[in-house]
């Protein structure tokens, strides 16, 4: 019995960190995009997106810390873990690039998070269910914003169409990592804490297919997928993102302002 409880706690902490890190790393990317958007309206929009994801990350990290019971705070978990201890999907750490890459990365993230959070509201874990209920509302708005821009730019000018298709093609091979699963998630799915990932993936595929079709963009057919983020194997970009995000906290641990 004690062994089962220990295993479940470790699995839940790992799963919560995966959910949290997706938001933490995406928030860091979006924060760096503020002031680089094509107009001031979307500078505000991307700041809102960033803060929504950061808020979700904080809720999940705080909960992960309390489940773990080792006294780690949200700040410790965000700022003192290295690259191999971060469990975000590799999609989230991909560089901002141009506006096309920002909105396409966001579309893929939103098309994943909407069905994920909606399923998680039925989680057997009440705390996770409550966090997901708030996050689902935010994710539905994010999807409206990202899909609106993907449609307008995909079905826009020759130049915007070209850039959007390049972003879709460039980012597609990082979407498979969202749906990789292992014993951790199988255990939690069995206990009703995590949703079955197949249903989430089916809704992701349907959303992406619908939005890209309306945007006159094609869904890539290249089967290659770069996976590994959920177990801490990342693309080279996370190694540059983390020191920028963490250096202040590491230089001045516990600093407040």
């Amino acid at each position: 019995m004690a062994t089962t409880t220990t295993t479940s706690t470790a699995a839940l902490v790992t799963y919560l960190l995966r959910l949290a890190d997706d938001n933490l790393i995406l928030a860091q990317r979006l924060g760096a995009a503020i002031s680089w958007m094509p107009d001031v309206e979307d500078d505000v929009a991307v700041a809102n997106l960033c803060l929504d994801h950061l808020g979700q990350a904080r809720n999940l990290l705080t909960y992960a810390g309390s489940v773990e019971g080792a006294g780690r705070t949200e700040d410790d978990l965000a700022m003192l873990r290295g690259e191999r201890e971060m469990f975000n999907a590799v999609l989230m750490e991909q560089p901002n690039g141009d506006f096309a890459h920002i909105v396409v990365r966001q579309l893929f993230a939103d098309a994943y998070q909407v069905p994920l959070y909606e399923a998680l509201t039925a989680s057997a874990d009440p705390e996770l269910s409550a966090i997901a209920a708030k996050a689902a509302k935010e994710a539905r708005y994010h999807l409206r914003w990202s899909s609106a821009w993907v449609v307008r730019l995909g079905d826009g000018t020759d130049e915007s169409h070209r850039r959007m298709q390049a972003a879709v093609d460039g980012l597609w091979s990082f979407t498979g990592d969202l749906f990789t699963t292992d014993a951790v998630e199988a255990e939690l799915a069995g206990a009703g804490v995590a949703p079955g990932i197949d249903a989430v993936r089916a809704r992701f595929n349907a959303t992406v297919a619908e939005v890209l079709a309306e945007a006159t963009l094609s869904v890539p057919t290249d089967p290659y997928q770069r996976i590994g983020g959920r177990t801490g194997y990342h693309t080279e970009h996370l190694g540059h993102l983390l020191p920028e995000m963490q250096s202040l906290y590491r230089a001045h641990p516990g600093a407040e302002w």
């Binding site: 107009d39 929009a45 914003w145 307008r152």
Partner: peptide
């Protein structure tokens, strides 16, 4: 500023 009405509503919300 927005290219069309739907985008204008999104921008206004944000």
């Amino acid at each position: 500023h927005a290219p069309d009405a739907e985008t204008a509503v999104l921008a206004a919300r944000d």
